[in-house]
Amino acid sequence: MIKILLCCSAGMSTSMVVQRMEKAAIKLGIDTKIQAVGMEEFSEKIADFDCCLLGPQIKYKLNDFQKCAAEYHKPVAVINTMDYGMLNGEKILQSALSLIESHQGA
């Protein structure tokens, strides 16, 4: 199972993205657990996930989150603004899978 954490300022706007990503995962036959949380929950959740994607509205926190996630050897990236705005679950899911794959290869 691939576990993806999404993080935004309050966890609300990313919940719609989670739904779209879950639909895409089902369509592609990928077993996933995808959860959206607010920024304040990031540090307590990241250890349980394979990666974290940040909502574009909090991309300014990327360095802080990467430092925290590095303790658990977890990659963190920012969701493409266009994909986020269009709720393109499949592209965002593919981004997460690529992030995990490239991190495991590193």
Rank of each mutant, 00 (worst) to 15 (best):
D48R: 05
T14I: 02
V76N: 03
M82I: 04
T81A: 15
T81S: 14
M1V: 09
L28G: 02
N63L: 06
S98G: 08
N63E: 14
Q57Y: 12
D31Q: 13
M16K: 10
I30V: 15
V78C: 14
L28C: 03
Q66H: 03
Q57V: 10
K27Y: 11
D50R: 00
E22H: 07
I100Q: 00
C68I: 15
D83H: 15
M12D: 00
A24L: 08
D64T: 05
C8D: 07
V78H: 01
G85W: 03
Y60E: 05
H103E: 09
K61P: 04
L54G: 07
L97S: 02
L99D: 05
T81V: 14
A96N: 04
V17W: 02
A77I: 02
F49Y: 15
L93M: 07
V18Y: 01
I34N: 01
F42V: 12
D31P: 08
Q94C: 08
G85Q: 06
L53E: 06
H73C: 10
G29E: 13
S15F: 10
P56H: 05
E41Y: 07
G85T: 01
I100F: 00
M82L: 14
S13V: 09
N63T: 06
H103C: 06
E41S: 14
G11W: 04
Y72L: 02
L53F: 12
G11I: 00
A25Q: 06
I2D: 00
Y84I: 05
V76H: 05
L6N: 03
A25G: 09
G85V: 03
A70I: 06
T81Y: 14
I30F: 04
C8I: 01
A69F: 09
C7I: 13
D50V: 01
K27E: 15
M39I: 13
A24R: 08
A70G: 07
V17N: 01
Q104A: 11
I4W: 12
L87M: 15
I79P: 07
V78M: 03
A106F: 10
C68M: 13
K27W: 06
S102C: 06
K67S: 11
I92G: 01
Q57L: 09
E44D: 13
L6F: 12
L28V: 06
Y84M: 12
C51E: 07
I79G: 09
G105A: 13
Q57A: 10
A77E: 14
K23H: 01
K67M: 11
C52Q: 02
E40D: 10
I100T: 04
V17Q: 02
L93H: 01
I26Q: 14
V18Q: 01
I79Y: 11
K61R: 15
K59G: 15
Q35P: 00
D31H: 12
I30H: 06
S98F: 04
I92N: 00
I58C: 05
E22L: 10
M39H: 02
I2M: 07
I26N: 12
L62P: 05
G29W: 10
M86H: 09
Q35E: 15
A70Q: 14
F65Q: 03
L54H: 05
M86D: 08
Q104D: 09
V37M: 10
D50L: 00
R20K: 15
I4R: 12
P56C: 11
V37A: 11
H73W: 05
I2G: 00
I26W: 08
L6R: 01
I26Y: 11
G89K: 03
L54P: 07
V76R: 04
Q94I: 11
G89H: 08
E40A: 12
